[in-house]
Simulated scan of single mutants.
Amino acid sequence: MMKVQKGDVIRLHYTGKVKETGEVFDTTYEEVAKEAGIYNENGIYGPVPIAVGAGHVLGGLDEQLEGLEVGKKYEIIVPPEKGFGKRDPKLIKTFTLGQFRRQGIYPFPGMPVEIETESGRKLKGRVLTVSGGRVRVDFNHPYAGKHLIYEAEVVEKIEDPIEKVKALIELRMPMVDTEKVIIEVGEKDVTVDFSNAGLDRNTLVLGEILLESDLKFIGYEEVNFKPGVDELLKPPEEKGEEVVELEEEVSEPLVEKTEENEEAEEKEKGEAKETEEPSSENAEEAETAEKKTKKKTTRKSTSRKSTKGRKTRRTTTRKTTSKKKTKAAEEKKGESKEE
């Protein structure tokens, strides 16, 4: 039978009890948890993957795993000092009843409480007694000073390097589908790629920090992650301001002024004026021609209008005369008929 050594990655089944009372306080068996009333719907039950000696379980249990045979069940006794510690009388504090009631709390023996110290540290405790306006609270661990019994079984000792890494990922990040994780191992180095694992940044950061410690504990000197912790903690890059390049204005070359240059400039200006502005004589001729044109146009328009008016009147007169003649003829015909 194979024996467990420090640094081995194993799968462990166990149930922890208080020796004095037989109370079950922890277990990897789902049915036992339900029977003991400590079942957690969100918990994961089954053999837990751990690295022996890495502190993944209670210290008093961890150190006694070395030398155990795979597949064999053991009963391991853990003394208080290697379990949840000895009871410390200094951790029993007394408060006034008013301190609780001002916060809307009505304490009773056995009630769990949480108190924040002046330094901001939160302490979890349990009410021991309520009497005479005084409340005594015990901040020792509930199992401090107790002897513990573990019923333990090493179910499997993992030998394959990649399966070891997967087991430790399962321990630190149980929500990860290890089939989506790419693992490359060498003699002293390992690379773990979580790119396709679909984890949020915070989970990855914490998981990688813990996992790095575990992988180095089992013998890897160089541990790499994709994406790495540094990359995950790096703040998003800010978009740089757009740089607009301005076209430089092309300036005319500087030319030293001389008498010849000045004469040439004046000549060019004079020619430009002659081209743009007509002479005074030409201007007068143009104005006279424009006036004549306007007069002719006015006369033609007037004659056309008057002629048109005369034609209209003549036509109307002729029509009226013919109507009178027709009426007179009709009257004569009527008279002849009467005769």
Results as ranks from 00 to 15, higher is better:
L199P: 05
G22T: 06
K124R: 13
T94N: 04
T21P: 07
K294E: 03
Y106Q: 10
K72F: 00
N282W: 04
H141Y: 09
L246I: 14
Q5D: 15
F139R: 03
V190L: 03
S251L: 06
T21F: 07
D177L: 07
Y106N: 11
L204Y: 01
E75G: 15
A36P: 08
R126S: 09
K17F: 09
V205P: 00
A272E: 13
D138P: 00
F84C: 07
F95T: 11
D62N: 01
E116G: 12
L128E: 10
D189W: 03
G83R: 06
E184G: 01
L233C: 09
E287I: 02
K308S: 14
T321H: 12
E268A: 14
K324L: 14
K257D: 08
V137M: 02
P49C: 07
F108V: 13
T129A: 01
G53K: 09
H56T: 00
Q99V: 02
G71T: 04
A264E: 09
K332W: 02
R102A: 14
A272K: 15
L123I: 13
N196H: 10
L204A: 04
K325A: 09
A272T: 08
A36Y: 00
T307C: 03
L68P: 05
E260K: 10
T317S: 12
I162S: 03
E335R: 12
A329M: 08
N224M: 10
K295Y: 00
T312L: 10
F95D: 09
K305G: 11
K34T: 08
P109T: 05
E30P: 06
R318N: 03
L65F: 11
G59M: 11
P80Y: 10
K82H: 05
D160W: 07
A329K: 15
L204R: 02
K324H: 15
D26E: 10
E338D: 15
E247D: 14
V48T: 14
D177N: 11
V135D: 00
K124Q: 06
D62M: 14
N140F: 02
V244P: 03
F108D: 07
K296V: 08
Y74N: 06
A264M: 05
H13K: 12
R101D: 10
N261L: 13
Y220H: 05
I158N: 06
E116N: 05
K308L: 11
T15H: 01
P161L: 02
L91E: 07
E252T: 02
K308G: 11
E285S: 09
L211C: 05
K188L: 04
L168V: 03
V165H: 05
E245C: 07
G22Y: 00
R313K: 15
N140C: 04
F225Q: 08
V9W: 11
G228W: 00
L171A: 12
V181S: 04
L246V: 13
A289P: 05
G133H: 05
R121E: 15
E170V: 11
V244F: 04
P227T: 04
Y143D: 00
E249Q: 00
G198H: 03
G46V: 10
E170P: 07
Y220S: 01
L199T: 03
G240H: 15
